[in-house]
Design a protein around this nucleic acid. Structure first.
Lengths: 191, 191
DNA sequence: GTCTATAGCTCGATAGAC
DNA sequence: GTCTATCGAGCTATAGAC
C-alpha cells in the first residue's frame, strides 16, 4: 500500500521548482526543506545529499523532455521539415529558461557527474534533429550538400540561445523570435 | 605619477578571470583576494562590495565586446551579408562560454541591477545585427519580406546557444558548428 | 521515515592598526 | 591604500530521538 504522497516526492517537487527558478548553486537544502515542508532528516534519508537530489530531478526532467521530443518527431503525417518547424514553433516561456540548458554554465556542471544528465539530453536532441535533417536531404527537401550536423546544431542552439537572450534582456518573447528566425531560414532553405 | 600596477587593477583582473571561469555566485571575495594577492581591506576600499566589483568588470567587458563588434561591422569593403558571415565565423572557445551570456541564468541577474550590463550589450548586439540584415534587404541581397528582427535574434542566438551546447556536451567546438549552420542558411537565403 | 538540534565551514562584509 | 582579525549569517551535512 502506497503512502498518499511521501516526503520524498514533496522534496523532489520542491527541488525541481527551485532548480528551474534559481539554479543549482543557489538552491540550498534549507530552501528545499522549507518549500516541501519536510525536515532535515527526510532529505538525507532519501538522498545522499544535494548532488544526488539534483541528479535525480535532472534525470527525471531529461526523460520528460525526451518524451516530448519523440511525440513531435514520430508524427508520420508530417515531412521532416514540418517536424522541425513544429519543434521550433514552441511556444516557450523565455523567462524560465530551459530546464536543463539553464544550468550548463554553473561551476558544479563543469567537471562533475551532474553534467551527464544534461549532456545525455542534448546529445539525444542533436541526434534526433540531425535525423530529420538527413531525411529532408534524402527526400530532396533540402539541398544535397546540406551540412546536416551544422544545421542540427543551429536548430537546437536557436532555442538555447533564444533563452539566453530572453533572460538577458528580460523579455520572455525573445526565445520565440529567435526560433521564428530559424523557421524562416529553414523554410527558405527548401529546394 | 602612476603606481606600477595597483591592487585595484589586480583585483579587477582576478575578478574578471573568475567571472568567466566559475560565474558570479560561485566567485567569492576570498577567491578574488587569494588570486590577486590583495588583502580584505583593498577590495572594500576600492569597491562597495562584490556586486559593485562584478558590475565594474562586466561594464568593462561589455565595452570591449562592443568595440570588437564595431570593428567587424564598420568594414566598408564588405557587403552586409559578408559582415554577418565574418561575425559568425569566429572562431570561439566554447568551453569558456560567452563572457556575458554565461551569467544570464544566475539568480543574481534576474531582478538585479547586475543584469543591466549584459542587457545593454545584447540590445546593442541585436540592434547592430539587425541593421546589417535591414541593409541586406535594402540592397536586394535578402528577400523583401525577410523577418529582420527574427533573423537578427537567430544570428545572436546561434552563438549563445552554441556556447550552451559546448558547455553541455563538453565539446569546445560545438559553438563553431552551430555558427557554421547559421552561415550556411544565411548564404542560401540570399536572393 | 520523519523530526529537531547542531556541527564545521565558508559566505560577504566590517573594524581598526599601520 | 593596504593589511590582519573578526563578525553574523547561511551553507551542507550529521547525530540521535521518536
Amino acid at each position: 500500500m502506497k503512502t498518499a504522497i511521501g516526503k520524498k516526492q514533496q522534496i523532489l517537487k520542491a527541488a525541481r521548482e527551485l532548480l528551474l527558478e534559481v539554479g543549482y548553486e543557489s538552491m540550498s537544502p534549507a530552501m528545499v526543506l522549507k518549500r516541501s515542508g519536510a525536515g532535515q532528516g527526510s532529505l538525507y534519508h532519501h538522498f545522499s545529499g544535494k548532488k544526488e537530489l539534483a541528479r535525480t530531478v535532472l534525470d527525471e526532467v531529461a526523460g520528460e523532455l525526451k518524451a516530448d521530443f519523440i511525440k513531435v518527431f514520430q508524427n508520420d503525417k508530417l515531412t521532416p521539415v514540418e517536424k522541425l518547424d513544429h519543434y521550433l514553433a514552441g511556444p516557450r516561456q523565455g523567462l524560465n529558461g530551459c530546464k536543463l540548458g539553464r544550468l550548463a554554465n554553473e561551476k558544479a556542471f563543469v567537471d562533475d557527474e551532474l553534467r551527464v544528465s544534461i549532456e545525455q539530453y542534448f546529445k539525444f536532441a542533436l541526434a534526433e534533429v540531425r535525423k530529420q535533417v538527413e531525411q529532408a536531404v534524402a527526400d530532396g527537401l533540402f539541398p544535397d550538400d546540406a551540412p546536416v550536423d551544422a544545421i542540427a546544431h543551429l536548430v537546437v542552439a536557436s532555442i538555447q540561445g533564444g533563452y539566453v537572450l530572453s533572460k538577458s534582456v528580460a523579455d520572455g518573447g525573445a526565445v520565440n523570435v529567435s526560433t521564428s528566425g530559424a523557421r524562416a531560414l529553414l523554410k527558405a532553405y527548401q529546394t
